[in-house]
């Protein structure tokens, strides 16, 4: 029995080490210099690469700020917009047809979508601009948010809205006092996921931004092309850091505040009633 337990613990440790290996490997490269074959580790170890993040030469700090601004903006806009629009779609009599349409941009390769739309971005002067990339990213994040939220709008939600109206509440009060608090967990989850879609995006950003909107994903590719593996590793670490933090926050807070999303079983009903009170 003890041997089995020990074996399980050893296997768990092995999996954890395997999962952490890519992060450790990238961190090692980001702190190294001169990695000549056949050395297993870099010959020089230095924190200089990390210290150069905010230096003018690398431009990594600017890329980090740009990526954060872009992804936070996209996630906020797409979450808010898709939450509201999904309600109109969910209660529409042709709900299934609308939803089928929303799946198409979601399954489409973003880079091919960008290739097809490039002409329109050039004509409107949005090509190579921050706002052009933002609009293009909305085309892939908004449908995701819409599909995500459509199932939130159940019969129960509709009944709650009717109840608010019966009690004299207006639409604004329905959103502020009931719908948004009930959807808090779903809104946060969707926000995180849309942030990640935007944060990870490369092909569409390259084509619409024509290399001028230098997000971190573009920086990684630029450093790889320049054969600067140490800065590519550093940019990779910066790219992986926010998702790791979000995962931790997600585990720590989002689901601990209680997900009171749609439930037909009525498990979250008592919570909704409390909010209504």
């Amino acid at each position: 029995m003890n041997v089995k337990k020990f074996g399980n613990k050893l296997a768990s440790l092995g999996i954890i080490l395997a999962v952490l290996f890519p992060f450790g490997f990238l961190l090692m490269l980001s702190m190294g210099r001169r990695w000549v074959f056949p050395s297993l580790l870099p010959e020089v170890w230095t924190p200089d690469n990390w210290l150069a993040i905010w230096g003018m030469q690398s431009g990594l700090g600017a890329s980090l700020a740009l990526s954060l601004a872009l992804s936070l903006g996209i996630a906020s806009m797409a979450t808010a917009g898709s939450f509201w629009v999904s309600k109109q779609v969910a209660y529409h009599r042709h709900r299934r047809r609308w939803l089928a349409m929303a799946y198409l941009p979601y399954v489409f390769a973003p880079v091919i979508l960008a290739a097809c739309l490039q002409y329109f971005f050039i004509r409107t002067g949005l090509s190579g601009k921050f706002w052009g990339v933002a609009i293009a990213q909305l085309f892939i994040t908004f449908p995701y948010g819409l599909i995500f939220f459509t199932s939130f709008w159940t019969e129960r939600m509709l009944s709650m809205e009717h109840l608010i109206a019966t009690l004299g509440g207006n639409t604004w009060q329905a959103y502020a006092r009931v719908l948004l608090p009930v959807a808090r967990g779903a809104l946060l989850t969707c926000f995180f996921q849309l942030f990640l879609i935007s944060w990870f995006e490369y092909g569409l950003t390259t084509l619409i931004g024509v290399g001028k909107v230098q997000t971190l994903t573009l920086k990684v590719f630029q450093y790889i092309n320049e054969a600067n593996i140490f800065f590519a590793a550093l940019a990779s670490c910066l790219l992986a850091l926010p998702p790791v933090v979000l995962l931790w926050l997600n585990k720590r807070y989002v689901f601990s505040i209680g997900f009171s999303g749609p439930s037909r079983s009525g498990k979250s009903g008592s919570k909704d009633q409390e909010i209504l009170k």
Partner: peptide, 14 residues
């Protein structure tokens, strides 16, 4: 969940 935090471009580089 940690591997899900790696973007495709980072995984390709790795």
């Amino acid at each position: 969940y940690l591997p899900l935090a790696l973007p495709a471009i980072v995984m390709a580089f790795f």
